[in-house]
C-alpha cells in the first residue's frame, strides 16, 4: 500500500488520476474503520489533510456558500451553524465530539451511505457537489443526483470531491433523527426539511429509509401548495399529518438490525410532521432558524 501526501489540490488530482484505486482520506472516520476491520486494502491512501483549501469555506459571487470537502463537522457547527442550520443540526448528531472533530461532509458524500447524517439537509437545501478530475475538470452535481445506490455515488474513479455549494438558509430549517439510544447513534431513519419562502417551496431529505438518501417530492409539492406563505396563517394539523404520510410514501425502507421497515415509515411520518410544524412555527415567528 502507498501513502500519498499531496500538498495542493492539483497534486491531489494528479495522484488520483495516476492511481484511481487510491482511497481519499481526510477525517478517517469511515476509511480507517474499513482498514481496521481489514475489509479491504486499497492500493493507496490519498491523505487530503495537507490540502489546506479543502478545510476552508467561502462566500461565492452567486450568493452561495462554498464549503471545502474537508471542513470537519465541528467547524460547520461552530462557523456555519447560523447560515446552514439544518446541516448544523445534523452535524450535531454525528457520532461523538471526537468524531465531529475529524469527520467531514466530503467523507459522508464519498461513502454515500444511506445513513449518512449530512445527506438529508443537503438535499433539503438544494446543495450541489463540486467534483473534479485532472482529465475532465470540474462538474457540479446536484445532491439529488449524487447518490446512485447503496454506498454508490456519481463520483467517477478519477474524481475527487472538492466542495459543496449551498445557499445560506433564507427560511427555517430542521433535522430530526431517530435511534435506539440517546447519543452515538446511527440513524434508524432521519429527515431534513428546509423552507424556501422566496419561492414558496419546501425542500426535504430522507435518510436511512431507502437505498439512497432521497427527497420526498410529492410531500414537498403538497405542503408548498397548502401552506399560507403570504398570510402566515398557522399550520393546519391535517396538512401536517398529510405531509407526514406523503413523506413516508417516498421512502422504500427495509428491515435491518436497527429497525423494521414498518417502524421507519411510521417514524418518518412523525418526523416529517414534527419538522414541518416546528419550521412553520419559526416562520410565523419571523425567525429564519430554530433548534429542535
Amino acid at each position: 500500500m502507498e501513502f500519498l501526501r499531496p500538498t495542493s489540490w492539483g497534486e491531489a488530482l494528479a495522484a488520483k488520476a495516476d492511481a484511481p484505486g487510491a482511497v481519499p482520506i481526510a477525517g478517517g472516520t469511515d476509511v480507517m474503520v474499513e482498514l481496521n476491520f481489514d475489509k479491504h486494502r486499497p492500493e493507496a491512501l490519498l491523505d487530503l489533510n495537507r490540502v489546506g483549501e479543502l478545510a476552508t469555506w467561502s462566500e461565492e459571487e452567486d450568493g452561495r456558500l462554498r464549503v471545502g470537502a474537508a471542513v470537519p463537522y465541528a467547524r460547520i457547527i461552530g462557523e456555519l451553524g447560523g447560515r446552514l442550520p439544518g446541516l448544523a443540526m445534523a452535524a450535531r448528531t454525528v457520532g461523538s465530539p471526537q468524531i465531529r472533530n475529524r469527520g467531514t461532509v466530503g467523507g459522508n458524500l464519498g461513502a454515500a451511505s444511506p445513513a449518512g447524517d449530512s445527506h438529508p439537509p443537503l438535499l433539503a437545501a438544494d446543495a450541489e457537489i463540486e467534483v473534479e478530475s485532472a482529465a475532465r475538470g470540474t462538474r457540479m452535481i446536484p445532491a439529488g443526483e449524487f447518490y446512485t445506490g447503496v454506498k454508490r455515488s456519481a463520483l467517477a474513479p478519477d474524481e475527487l470531491i472538492r466542495a459543496f455549494h449551498v445557499r445560506p438558509a433564507e427560511g427555517p430549517q430542521q433535522f430530526s433523527k431517530i435511534g435506539t439510544r440517546n447519543a452515538m447513534v446511527i440513524a434508524v431513519c432521519s429527515f431534513g426539511l428546509a423552507l424556501h419562502p422566496s419561492d414558496q417551496r419546501i425542500g426535504t431529505g430522507i435518510g436511512s429509509a431507502a437505498p439512497t438518501p432521497r427527497r420526498a417530492f410529492e410531500a414537498e409539492e403538497y405542503a408548498a401548495g397548502e401552506l399560507d406563505w403570504a398570510g402566515r396563517s398557522p399550520l393546519d394539523e391535517r396538512v401536517a399529518r398529510r405531509f407526514g404520510e406523503l413523506a413516508a410514501r417516498a421512502a422504500a425502507p427495509i428491515d435491518d438490525v436497527r429497525g423494521t421497515a414498518e417502524y421507519r415509515l411510521h417514524a418518518l411520518s412523525v418526523m416529517a410532521r414534527r419538522t414541518l410544524t416546528w419550521a412553520w412555527k419559526d416562520y410565523l415567528n419571523g425567525g429564519a432558524t430554530a433548534c429542535a
Binding site: M32, Q98, R102, M184
Partner: peptide, 24 residues
C-alpha cells in the same frame, strides 16, 4: 471510533486515535 477509549489530542484537538492514519 465508537467507544472513545483511544482519545488523544492531535494538534490540540481530541480525536479517536484509531481513526487517524499513522501518516496523517
Amino acid at each position: 471510533g465508537e467507544c472513545g477509549s483511544c482519545t488523544v489530542y492531535l494538534d490540540g484537538t481530541p480525536v479517536c486515535a484509531c481513526l487517524v492514519a499513522a501518516g496523517q
